[in-house]
Amino acid sequence: MTRCLCLVQQDQTPEAKRAQLQQGLQRFSEGAFGQAADITWISVPAGSGFTAAAPSTSSIVSFTADQPIEQDERVSLLGELCDLWMQETGCSLAEIVAVISDPRAV
């Protein structure tokens, strides 16, 4: 199972929207990695998120693959992930940070 961490601004991503995102992220994980994702949501409390020292509207979605992936494939998947996030949330590309990590060496 892949792992996915979503850091979102509390006042930007209501619970109903989160359910849709969750489904989309599971579809993405199954398509990208061939398996479901263990998704963790963390809400940044209102007034507690800053980007460039100003109130933040950024979301961070971070997958950890279960095996190393080629960079060309990673870039393609990162683009897909950003598209998914924009479609489901209505946010702009500038408001998404997408990460796809290889498993870390222990």
Binding site: G49, T51, S56
Partner: peptide
């Protein structure tokens, strides 16, 4: 550049 820098604050966050 500052555009890249995100700072998020939490209280008693188990993560």
């Amino acid at each position: 550049p500052p555009e890249f820098v995100h700072a998020f604050f939490f209280e008693d966050a188990s993560h």
